[in-house]
């Protein structure tokens, strides 16, 4: 007890540090595993041809991003795609987003380090988005050097924990 009291000036009686998701906002870099992601804006479109051609009743939510693979080895795009989600529109969102190079609409399936791309991260929705804001969340993705339970060392692993969260104003285009 005495030791605990003595540690009070140094924070011994303080509660746990406040923790929570990092705030995602337009233009602010966010790390999704090895990827540095900057979301510039969020746009709703009826389609993103030729890359995404949904049904007429559906819409496409596009995160207009700049993505850089940090680190020193190639990575596959799934590590990024599977760990960013949108919500808050009162519609069903396809949980298998697409990732396309904005300049030529080609799909990005892998990355080499050190290059920055302007990419569209696309989510097909069941209908028009309700409301004028979109909540964007990213998962915590950690580097696992060793895992005695698997033969998969030095891998990026998604944790069931929100790493970043933010609200974006939705731009609508027809």
């Amino acid at each position: 007890m005495a030791a605990l009291l003595a540690s009070a000036p140094f924070g011994g009686l303080a509660g746990p540090a406040a923790s929570g998701p990092e705030t995602i906002s337009p233009g602010k870099p966010l790390m999704v595993g090895p990827y540095e992601v900057i979301i510039d804006k969020v746009v709703e479109l009826p389609d993103l041809k030729p890359a995404v051609s949904p049904q007429p009743s559906q819409r496409v939510i596009v995160l207009d991003t700049r993505v850089t693979l940090t680190g020193d080895r190639p990575e596959y795009a799934v590590t990024l795609k599977d760990n960013v989600a949108v919500s808050g529109g009162g519609v069903k969102v396809d949980d298998n987003p697409g990732l396309y190079f904005v300049e030529d609409a080609t799909a990005m399936s892998n990355f080499n380090p050190g290059l920055t791309y302007r990419l569209a991260l696309t989510f097909t929705t069941s209908g028009p988005w309700q409301g004028d804001t979109v909540t964007v969340k990213s998962n915590l993705v950690e580097f696992r050097e060793q895992d005695s339970a698997t033969l998969d060392p030095n891998a990026w692993v998604s944790r069931d924990e929100v790493r970043g969260q933010g609200t974006f104003t939705l731009e609508r285009r027809s």
Partner: peptide, 17 residues
Amino acid sequence: FFLVDAQDRRWIASLRG
């Protein structure tokens, strides 16, 4: 199919083109 450069770094092929 992948590349190795002078620094022994790896670079993988793309399907984009």
